[in-house]
Design a protein around this nucleic acid. Structure first.
Length: 327
DNA sequence: CATCAGGGCCCTG
DNA sequence: CAGGGCCCTGAT
């Protein structure tokens, strides 16, 4: 275990998200696997991030309500931070966590949907979020591929331990992501020794794309979904499944739904069409079905069901789902 | 013990 | 455009 870096400088700010805003359903996703760079308890999320090369510890605290939201953000660093830096990270966090999102059209459009209506009520103000950068998301997307949950967790942990840094702030010790440069400079065999398997090549090639500025998250944000898709698919090791997650979570494309993986197919069929999990509808059919029912917000609508399902699972209420989740 | 598929993707034919 | 191969692991 590395010696943690003490983040001795603390800065406090507040952000007012658009209402309605559900703090916990936005800042914690029970369907995500645990990762060493964050922690959560009701009303508080801890998160590390690397911003402009500076490792930061972030603490988000719920100081408001759904109708009148307020978040207190504490930013911990190992140095004094200039005002312009602070402003830039705050703007970035608003983007990443979708804090200015306008959900009113979605909420009113589907309030009378026989299933979605009550889910919206239950999770009013929940937003999809990307808790880190596009680069960090890609690293996770790669370790997710063709692996069980436990193995993905182990791969990410090994990467943190070997290339990340350990940060101590607010009585937490969490890993912070590495610079793309460090993986770019690493021999493929060193990565393979961490048991990431053939993904070593993808991790290296994607890191290289960031080092060479072949890909730029901020440029991509301004493009339309089709161009974003095309550019992401050019990255070695990034295919349709990863692109789907990234367009939604990272680039906030609420209607992009072009690919459904086998396990999602089973879950969706059961959830929306009440099939047995062993005999799901085809993915083509499901996509057509979503297009008719949730047009304009296909992915967001499906995501509301998804999050609701995994919150229920967290409370031990969904037996059939356990068979589909391989630990 | 051996076999196999897993929260994909690349490459080949 | 379908299908084999890829690293490693735990389930069977």
């Amino acid at each position: 275990m590395k010696t943690p870096v003490e983040l001795g400088f603390k800065f406090e700010r507040t952000i007012k998200p658009t209402a309605p805003f559900n703090f916990d359903a936005t800042f914690y996703k029970p369907g995500h696997f645990p990762s060493g760079d964050n922690d959560w308890s009701p009303g508080v999320r801890w998160q590390t991030t690397l911003w402009k090369g500076v490792p930061l510890g972030l603490v988000f605290e719920n100081h408001g309500s759904i109708a009148s939201p307020l978040i207190q953000i504490s930013i911990f660093a190992d140095r004094d931070l200039e005002n312009s830096f602070m402003e830039s990270i705050l703007e970035e966090l608003k983007y990443r966590y979708n804090l200015q999102m306008d959900l009113s059209e979605f909420n009113s459009k589907f309030q009378d949907d026989p299933q979605l209506g009550s889910i919206i009520q239950k999770w009013l103000g929940m937003r999809p979020m990307n808790y880190g950068s596009l680069y960090e998301y890609l690293m996770i997307a790669i370790v997710l591929q063709n692996a069980t949950v436990r193995r993905s967790v182990n791969m990410l942990q090994a990467l943190f331990e070997n290339y990340g840094s350990l940060l101590a702030f607010d009585d937490k010790v969490l890993y912070c992501c590495w610079q793309p440069q460090s993986i770019h400079n690493t021999p493929e065999q060193d990565l393979r020794n961490l048991k990431v398997g053939y993904r070593a090549k993808s991790l290296k090639r994607v890191s290289e794309a960031f080092v060479s500025k072949e890909i730029d998250e901020f440029v991509l944000r301004e493009k339309n979904p089709e161009d974003q898709r095309t550019e992401l698919l050019r990255l070695y090791g990034v295919g349709p499944a990863s692109v789907g997650y990234i367009l939604f979570d990272v680039f906030h494309q609420m209607d992009y739904l072009a690919y459904i993986s086998p396990w999602e197919q089973k879950i969706y069929s059961k959830l929306f069409l009440e099939t047995e999990i062993d005999s799901p509808f085809s993915t083509d059919y499901l996509i057509k079905y979503f297009t008719e029912r949730f047009c304009g917000y296909r992915m967001l609508a499906v995501n509301y069901f998804w999050e609701d399902l995994f919150w229920k699972r967290k409370q031990g209420q969904v037996d059939w789902l356990e068979k589909l989740i391989r630990l």
